[in-house]
């Protein structure tokens, strides 16, 4: 349970960090370290160097930019939960973050770190996909913006290039008839979910006009269930039909917490839980 050997570079600014990263393919960015350090302690990963960006100024700002709320990569989960703008514009994000680990971990773990790490069992990547978030990446040739839907490629695999660092996430505001509803099933509060669901619902009166279903802890990345969402809009909740649809749409991968069959079952009943929450 001790990390392998690596060198350590404390970046003073984003340019230094980008330059260093572009010169060493095996180097890894260290922000809050709350996912990276367990992985190192368990020797699941052995980078040549950790580039510590946590001391870089102004990367933790949370501000409104046009129709977006812009969360700086280094804002910790606690920063985000306690931020007045987030509490006012995105109360659902505060509720989601309450499910992310425990207070002492939220004090150190960063928003950008969780998005960039791309753990398929984590809440934030699925939230970003459901919200149609824009992910801001800075590299040698400047800045580019990737839609969260295109950012996650596979298991812990993202569109981040070897010279790039994630610097911010931009969430568009929800309109008055849109709601982000989420639920998850986990063995202990704060643990990774056995299965979880982010649902963006657009209502016309009480009828569902549009629905996006994004699952986490089900497969290799945030899983979008488009056809199943269509079925829900057209026919409401029908366990057997939705289960069949989810099975054809998502490649469920079992883990230590739950088998793929159990995840499929949980993914199906989560739709019912979401619809019940919507009625309340």
């Amino acid at each position: 349970m001790k990390a392998p050997d690596f060198s350590y570079f404390e970046a003073q600014n984003i340019e230094d960090a980008i330059k260093y990263k572009s010169e060493d393919d095996e180097a890894v960015i260290l922000a809050g370290g709350q996912s990276l350090l367990p992985a190192l302690n368990m020797r699941l990963s052995s980078p040549s160097c950790l580039i510590d960006i946590s001391k870089i100024n102004n990367l933790n700002e949370i501000k409104i930019e046009g129709d977006f709320i812009n969360i700086g990569a280094l804002a910790t989960h606690s920063d985000v939960m306690n931020n007045d703008l987030v509490r006012e514009k995105y109360p659902c994000l505060v509720d989601i973050l309450k499910m992310v680990a425990h207070a002492a971990i939220r004090n150190k773990g960063t928003h950008g770190g969780s998005i960039a790490y791309g753990d398929p069992a984590a809440e934030l990547p699925a939230f970003a996909v459901a919200m149609d978030a824009e992910i801001v990446l800075s590299g040698l040739s400047g800045q580019r913006i990737v839609n969260a839907k295109d950012f996650y490629l596979g298991l812990f695999e993202t569109d981040l290039k070897s010279d790039e660092i994630l610097t911010a996430i931009r969430y568009p505001f929800l309109s008055h008839n849109q709601h982000l509803i989420f639920d998850e099933v986990c063995r202990r509060h704060g643990d990774y979910a056995m299965a979880g669901l982010m649902a963006k619902v657009e209502l016309d009166q009480s009828k569902i006009n549009n629905l996006d279903l994004v699952y986490f802890a089900t497969g290799d990345k945030p899983n979008v269930a488009q056809n199943t969402a269509r079925l829900v809009i057209d026919n409401g909740y029908d366990y057997e039909k939705l289960k069949k649809s989810l099975a054809s749409e998502i490649d469920f991968a079992g883990d230590l917490n739950s088998s793929s069959e159990m995840k499929l079952h949980l993914a199906t009943i989560l739709i019912n839980k979401i619809l019940n929450k919507l009625e309340r």
Partner: peptide
Amino acid sequence: AVRSCLVLASQ
């Protein structure tokens, strides 16, 4: 409060 097993001494 932080977890000292998830913070490097160098940090």
